[in-house]
């Protein structure tokens, strides 16, 4: 955790996040994210052995709803906001590669 991230890391992360970076942005983000991550190393100043992570502020459990049908929204209204639609469906350019 002592090494801040490399330019390759930033490039990989941008790809995972579906963002394209210019060369200039790549340099800038590498520096800025590195600074933030160096600051984040203060988290290691606490002894956190055996501490449970908190993903959620309150311990609510079993929040469920009844299995009852509610009206869906008008399909015309759904597709009205679609960038592209055809035949009642959302249209996208060709898909390269299968879903995981």
């Amino acid at each position: 955790m002592t090494e801040p991230l490399s330019r390759e890391d930033v490039s990989h992360v941008a790809k995972l996040a579906r963002l394209r970076l210019t060369e200039e942005e790549l340099v800038r983000y590498t520096e800025q994210l590195g600074k933030i991550l160096v600051h984040a190393q203060d988290l290691n100043s606490l002894d956190l052995a055996g501490v449970a992570p908190t993903a959620h502020p309150f311990g609510l459990v079993n929040v469920v709803r009844q299995d009852e049908v509610h009206p869906s929204i008008d399909p015309a209204a759904v597709l009205a906001e679609a960038p592209d639609a055809e035949d009642g469906r959302f249209a996208v350019p060709r898909i390269v590669g299968e879903a995981p």
Binding site: R89, F90, A91, V92, P93, R94, I95
Partner: peptide, 12 residues
Amino acid sequence: RIHGADRSLVDY
């Protein structure tokens, strides 16, 4: 099939 298609439509 997915290969050779130029456009895909999605039904949710």
